[in-house]
Design a protein around this nucleic acid. Structure first.
Lengths: 151, 151
DNA sequence: TTTTAACAAGACATAAAAGTAAACATTCAA
DNA sequence: TTGAATGTTTACTTTTATGTCTTGTTAAAA
């Protein structure tokens, strides 16, 4: 249960795009420079975000990336699901059944219940957070985020 | 942010050990058979758990594994930290700074705040759950676990 | 004391994720 | 219409996580 590189870098790139004031958007070279990532890698990340309809691109000279919708409509849960997948997805038990053909815990699987609870908890948290919440300065966003934890 | 194989299999093996009634404990071959994992792989998982003082072993013939302490004293957060590491650990930013030497977000890093909130939330949940909570049948443990979510 | 069944440890092979590179397509402007 | 700057796509390399294999150690019982 670790945060993947794609989640980290993808989210950073998305924040750069979101905070871009230019109507033409921000280009791959600019994102690459700002985050210290190779331009090819930035392209790979933006591709995921674009296919998920989180950002939009204009190719050609003077091209770049812009948010596909307003920051307050972009839910962080959706962004992370795109970048890093779901923690406990439908195929999980099928992929983790050892040598046997069926999950040996299929009847009495308390582990599965645990994952479900963790998943629900994280999902519930991330659903409350929008891209807009992350756009303020660290202090402010810390404040907003902490208020979610302190409930 | 996915559940790793070690977390899944390690927890299953731990549950088998915990539910073993035999005073001599349960052996690697038995665990291997029960979970459909190779005995070598089981050995690797039990090694982590043993080094973390979660289980104890008796080598030699008639050997096997037993819990190192009572199930109600084994916190699931500690078990998962051993098996899968911490979600957002101290070295995370250092490892994810791109080409630049320093995290380019060091001053104004709302992403870091986000990870912290997620980490705290999951930690808080997993700290409330003990191995004992997972030992009951699926229905029962679901009930116990769900009560934690429904707060 | 020897055999046997178990655990222990680290090296090795394989699979998946991360990151790079190269060839291509699109748009704007001169 | 040409070229420069941009995004797009696919294939490749490297790294990390996963799982296997080999060799060694321990302790009970014959």
């Amino acid at each position: 249960m670790k945060i993947s590189s794609q989640e980290e870098y993808g989210l950073r790139v998305l924040l750069r795009i979101a905070s871009c004031k230019d109507a033409e958007g921000i280009s791959i070279p600019q994102l690459s420079e700002a985050e210290g990532l190779s331009s090819h890698y930035v392209a790979k990340l933006t591709r995921s975000l674009r296919l998920a309809d989180i950002i939009k691109s204009t190719p050609g000279s003077k091209g770049g990336y812009l948010l596909a919708r307003s920051a307050s409509d972009i839910i962080i849960r959706d962004v992370l699901a795109e970048l890093g997948g779901v923690m406990f997805d439908k195929g999980f038990c099928g992929r983790h059944n050892g040598i046997a053909n069926l999950c040996t815990n299929s009847v009495n699987c308390s582990v599965r219940s645990l994952w479900r609870v963790v998943q629900v908890t994280v999902d519930r948290l991330l659903s409350k957070i929008t891209l807009e919440d992350l756009l303020s300065s660290e202090k402010d966003s810390l404040h907003v985020l902490n208020s979610l934890v302190e409930v």
